[in-house]
Design a protein around this nucleic acid. Structure first.
Length: 244
DNA sequence: CCATTAAATTCAA
DNA sequence: TTGAATTTAATGG
């Protein structure tokens, strides 16, 4: 098994050809790219591991992910990282700083090589004011994010560690496809822990238990789900309805 | 939490 | 493509 050239498995998601029905960028590309402003959007490329939003830095605009995967986090109590969400192509990052907030309350780093569309605040403001459809789509996005965030508070305060870890696996599974039985997004145990609100060791132990129970399989960073319905069942018993 | 060992990834040649 | 170097996973105290 080998990779030819420098083309790793980057998802070629050109916004012109992207046909995700739920993509805010795609649905509003006329508004976003045909602006009267000369330089409406700049494309930014980040290599794996590169941080493109720094906590506390002033907000100048918003990022739309063109391709690749990103993790969004905030630094918690004793320097512990809390992963807020994982984002992929067609999603927006840095949106909470938009509007009133002056500084980012989150950081964002590329988990793989990433391409970003960057739009300035000014450009987006005029696009939003002039185009109700775009504003409406953005509002839906914000509402959805708020819902997700509220669910997360619930899950962290009320679920057991095991349930939170399962919840995290299912979240990754829903959001990122399988490649022959394994989750296509490789994450370290620490990253699972930071999302689930626990420690690396706890994640490792839950993983080991789940492996013994034949619910998942793990080969290094490659995690495969064997029995999705059984895992869902454990979560559903506690009435947790999950986000996208 | 930390220390140890096993395993997996990365990197350079 | 390989194996040495480095990083990450797993376990037990």
């Amino acid at each position: 098994m080998y990779v030819t050239g420098s083309h790793n498995n980057s998802i070629t998601s050109n916004c012109e050809t992207c046909n995700r029905t739920n993509c805010v960028i795609h649905k509003n590309k006329g508004v976003l790219f045909n602006s009267t402003l000369p330089q409406s959007s700049t494309i930014l490329k980040c290599k794996k591991g590169q941080q493109f939003i720094i906590e506390g830095a002033p907000v100048n605009g918003l990022f739309f992910i063109k391709s690749g995967t990103v993790k969004v986090f905030r630094t918690g109590i004793n320097g512990r990282e809390q992963i807020v969400r994982f984002a992929k192509g067609c999603e927006i990052v840095g949106h909470r700083g938009f509007g009133t907030q002056e500084y980012y309350s989150i950081g964002a780093v590329a988990l793989q090589d990433v391409e970003l569309h960057y739009f300035s605040k000014e450009h987006l403001q005029s696009a939003l004011l002039e185009n109700p459809k775009f504003a409406y789509d953005m509002m839906l996005f914000y509402a959805n994010e708020l819902n997700r965030s509220e669910n997360k508070v619930k899950s962290i305060s009320q679920m057991t560690v095991r349930e939170r870890v399962i919840d995290t696996i299912l979240y990754i599974n829903r959001k990122f496809d399988d490649i022959n039985g394994f989750l296509s997004l490789p994450l370290s145990r620490k990253e699972y822990a930071d999302y689930a609100g626990t420690t690396e060791e706890q994640v490792i132990r839950v993983f080991s238990a789940l492996k013994k129970e034949n619910l998942i399989m793990a080969k290094g960073k490659k995690i495969g789900i064997i029995d999705v319905s059984q895992l869902k069942k454990e979560i559903n018993e506690h009435n947790y309805f999950l986000d996208s």
